[in-house]
Every structure is written in structure tokens, then in C-alpha cells.
Amino acid sequence: MKIIVCLKQVPKNDSILRINDQGNWIQDRDLTYEINESDAYGLEAALQLKEKQGGEVIALSLGPARVQSVIKEALARGADRGIHLEDPAFDKLDAYGIAAVISAAAKAEGFDLLLTGLQSDDYGFAQTGVIAAELLGLPHATIVMDVQPGDGSLRVKRELENGYFQWVSMPAPAVLTIQSGINTLRYATLKGIMGAKKKEIKKLDVTALGIDKAALAPRMEFLRVYVPQKSKQTQFIEGSPAEIAASLMEKLRNEARVF
């Protein structure tokens, strides 16, 4: 089974975010990055499928030179090779643009399964995998918890709302978006890190992928980005732990009247 897993590099979860001078996104400088959380679970799902079924796992990432660290991390954890999609034209793409580039690369590569995380921790569109499926003309399922490959088909467990789940079957190849927390992430071993150095990372740009730049035109404009206004006025309680405890209990009893 040939699996392509898409890995987005995002600012670390606890990053301090500063708005850029144009006021329409964040400043890139001084940030440290990590693999988008649900994408890491997609990678783990791919590696576990390969261990059971055999085949190949290809780690794909789109972005500037820094995203190579995400691909290298995936190779160290056990992916077989990498694809790095890099071009100035890929800067600040929206979900459709990212999906257009990924689907062009995936189509050229060929695959049985294309995996993404269910949403990114930066833009949070939750659209890229589904749009890629549409552009590739393939069936898809989202918020996937478990994957059972069959003969030319797949049976996947989807998470629904309110504690419900559902198994859905579809022909392969297919595109799945993976839910966070469905497996236990592995760490790269020293052997894995050493082995990763010999693995291939193929770089592809807009020309190599034969992408019509018109497809990458933004479909939404970010007018401004800002720290959200509070919908509630929060009373912050300060002091020693004992003082905080006494003050909070007093407020809960006499102000909020919850006891």
C-alpha cells in the first residue's frame, strides 16, 4: 500500500504570536515550529498501516525551506521518502490553493491512500484534504479514527457528534482526514534519525508540478487579524493560593451564587 501523508508545519502551540505590520497575519520571525497536531496522528496511522500491510509511506510538506525539518522528522520516525513542495507562488495559500498543489503532486506520484490531519492549528480551515479529494476525483472521509484496508477498498471509522461513530466503506484510492489522539505517536529513534539522512527528499515547484497559477489565486481576503475582544469581562483573582481560594469561594457564594 502506497500512502502519502501530508504534514503541515505550524507555529508551536505555546508560541507568542505578534501581528505583522500590515495587520493581516502574524510575524514569521522568532517563531519556532512543529508538525500540526492531527497531521502527526496521520503520519502515525500511515506508519502503522505500513507495518501491517507492507508498502511505502511518503511524507509530503508544502512551504519554505524550514518545512524540511518536518519531512526529516517523519523520515526519522519511519517514512520512506519525502516530497517538499516549495515555490514563492506557494506563499500564504488558502485551503483551495494548498489542496491544488498537494493534489497535483499526489497525482504525479500515484498512491492508494492520501492522508491529512483533520484541520490545521493555524488557519483551521479543515478543508484541505476534502478539496484535494474533489480535485483528484476521489472519494473521501473526514474525522477518521480507524482504517481497515480491503481489496481495492477501505472501511474507515468516522467520528460523529454526541459520542456517535460510523463505519463507512469506499473504493480506494481515497483521501482521509485523520482525527487527533487516535493512536500513540512514536518518537524517532537514534537509528531512525541516522537512517533518515540517506532517504530521498524530492523538491517540486510550480513548474515541475505543471500548475496553472490562476488556480492558486486567493479565494478569500484577510482584511485584518487581531486579538479577539472578550465576550465576557473576566475578573482575574490574584494573591497567594490561599488568598485566591478564599476570594474565589466568596465570589462564587455571594456574587455568582452557585452554592
Binding site: 502574524i26 493555524d122 478569500m220 484577510f222 482584511l223 487579524v225 486579538v227
Partner: peptide
């Protein structure tokens, strides 16, 4: 919301 609710963005659809 972007960045998991840490920031908000005003967006207009284009096209």
C-alpha cells in the same frame, strides 16, 4: 478564529 482562537481574522470571500 485562527490559531485555535488565540487570534481572530476578518475575512471576505473573493470571486
Amino acid at each position: 478564529q485562527v490559531f485555535q482562537g488565540k487570534l481572530a481574522a476578518d475575512v471576505v470571500p473573493v470571486g
